[in-house]
Design a binder for these strands. Structure first.
Lengths: 360, 360
DNA sequence: ATGACGGCGCAAAACGTTTTACAGACTCGC
DNA sequence: GCGAGTCTGTAAAACGTTTTGCGCCGTCAT
């Protein structure tokens, strides 16, 4: 869906012809450096890549020449010889979604730290586009790919691997014998959230969930059950919202019959809506009902009473993904595939009380 | 600032040694295709790049061979010969910021459509890191760069250009003789917002702004002035918030003496906070006071009464940036630099009334 | 027949590196 | 002095393309 756009004014600057004045000089090649330093190309290459193989004196001469000529290496050409590029693919459904954006950020940081460049691939929930990016990455001889896969079509993924490109799965970790994966532990997240409520005296817990078909929702509920089971006298109910939005959160607050004393919403939108709905009914938060959200989205801290929530280390997810990828690439034989699951952590704010000895 | 993270469990799958079973076969080269089709390499290359130079019969034979061998072209090697790669750099302060994420999305889409790959560079507000990415892009022989520049250090930018890499500036358009730029028209945005209020009968307008040192803020205020000036009997006041956050928006609502009948907040956070603050004082929105925000952030639709706001065509910004870049690259001599300014558009929601004949 | 011309296809050079195998120059121990 | 061993440095091949210039072979007009 293209946004209609009106470019109000568009000014033309420069003349085009003389706007490309001195056609920029051809960048210096390694050969030029060699000539300038009075050594052979191979020596220059050695200085650059295995400095220990060359005497201090020549090394310095070479480095001077490099500086003088403003030489910059051409990793493309190098890759041609060595057989691998230095770029990593990052394939995700939508950069605009803050969850994926945080993954991208972590991944970009890690790639930068290790001297790799990150190719952003926006699959936009379209499998054929995901596939298009895969072939593009194969062409580029990408050294590896981090992917938040779309459908559960492992075929496409393994075809990439057959091409010799290691893959790390992020977030939607399907069990995967042939590669690493990273994800966050939603069961633990649910447990943490409800444990937090229990610790603050809540005993009649309501889970406001999304559709149980969504893995994250099911997992978080399971975690909630675990927490409640371990505390005698505690009780757990669940209600499912059709969509995990603010509007549906509010709607559920309206329809609530017997009020619980603790609510765990499996995402912050639901929680924000619920809080608003409850507030309109005159219910005080956290005095009458304590509320915990999930995700630590921006909205959690904006809402009327700042929301206690569960934070997922998403940037770390992205970072870990590329680091595991690089390990697979660099260690090769010694590498063992790993399934890394990150634990979320509670973010206490005003929608829950401070912990007391008991409560009831 | 690294988030503390606890990987709860980490399972080891596979054995590492035999986890890399059949070392994937070396991908087919153009030479293999040539052999299989019984033609020369150059013919294969011609089939691939200038099909008109080769007879239909041979072309088909070659294409069959390509399919049979599952040949994929190696643009890196090609680039070595032709002198240019097919990757574009996108340098921005923070992908996590939804504004920049939207730019990234638009840019990624455009790059994909034109067969270029987009290298994500996360400068993270650190000039030295921005510089680091610049040199990385020079190394890669990136064909061009779209950048949301950090400081106003045109030196770094022009140094990139001297290297022969065209640059398009996004968002923070400084007037730029040597390249294209894209941005949104904040003056128009301010005018639109206030015009919207005036059209709905508001006459005593308050602008809740950020620091006037920020260009966007100054521009939006200027637009507001233009709108008010063109309507007799209308009056404009301004108040500046120290930060453009929900909290400060609420604070301003508290401190407000004489109530205006229309408020233009120069960003949606301020607007959300202001609405909450006003609501707590018992002020009805939009009956007593109409409110317009800016940016069409997620929060605008979540808030108590959904917020009328101004939407910026940010994805289009990103898309246009790479397209202008590609024009510069492909048209070369005929290209003329352009400064493209996009117009924002109003998004009417519940925090303003429906337009009436007048209103007073 | 002959010459010119067009259409196809090919050989080879070039792009900028890395790496292998080797050569020359020292040093050292005898 | 001499051979073995160490250091430095080098020539050349290789990576996978694209492109230039050329040659071959029909065809067509003369």
């Amino acid at each position: 869906m293209k946004t209609a756009v009106v470019p109000v004014r568009t000014a033309v600057i420069g003349e085009g012809v003389d706007a490309v004045p001195a056609r920029p000089v051809r960048p210096a090649r390694i050969q030029d450096v060699a000539a300038a330093a009075g050594v052979s190309v191979s020596t220059v290459s050695n200085v650059l890549n295995r400095p220990e193989r060359v005497s201090a004196r020549t090394a310095e001469r070479v480095r001077d020449a490099v500086a003088a000529l403003d030489y910059v290496r051409h990793p493309g050409a190098a890759g041609l010889r060595t057989g691998h590029s230095s770029s990593i693919g990052l394939v995700l459904p939508d950069v605009t979604n803050s969850f994926y954006a945080r993954i991208a950020r972590g991944a970009a940081d890690a790639a930068y730290d290790h001297g790799y460049s990150l190719v952003l691939c926006h699959s936009g929930d379209a499998p054929e586009r995901e596939q298009g990016y895969f072939t593009m990455l194969v062409e580029q001889r990408a050294v590896g790919v981090v992917v938040v896969p779309l459908g559960a079509d492992p075929g496409r993924l393994s075809r990439l691997r057959e091409r010799g490109i290691p893959l790390v799965l992020a977030d939607r970790a399907m069990p995967d014998r042939d590669g690493c994966s990273v994800s966050v532990d939603d069961v633990a997240g649910g447990r943490i959230a409800v444990q937090h409520l229990l610790d603050r005296g809540a005993r009649d817990i309501l889970v406001v969930n999304g559709e149980s078909g969504i893995r994250q929702c099911a997992d978080r509920y399971q975690g909630a059950r675990q927490a409640v089971r371990s505390r005698r006298g505690a009780r757990l109910r669940q209600v499912a919202a059709e969509e995990m939005t603010v509007a549906y959160g509010a709607k559920i607050a309206d329809q609530l019959g017997e009020l619980p004393d603790g609510v765990f919403c499996t995402n912050d939108f639901l929680a924000a809506g619920l809080c608003r709905g409850l507030a309109e009914r005159g219910v005080r938060i956290p005095e009458d009902v304590q509320v915990v959200g999930y995700g630590d989205l921006d909205i959690a801290s904006f809402v009327g009473t700042p929301l206690t929530t569960v934070r997922q280390p998403v940037e770390e997810l992205g970072r870990a993904a590329v680091e595991m990828l690089l390990d697979e690439i660099e260690a090769r034989a010694e590498h063992v595939h790993e399934t890394r699951v990150f634990a979320p952590e509670p973010v206490p704010r005003d929608s829950t009380r401070t912990p007391g000895p008991t409560g009831t």
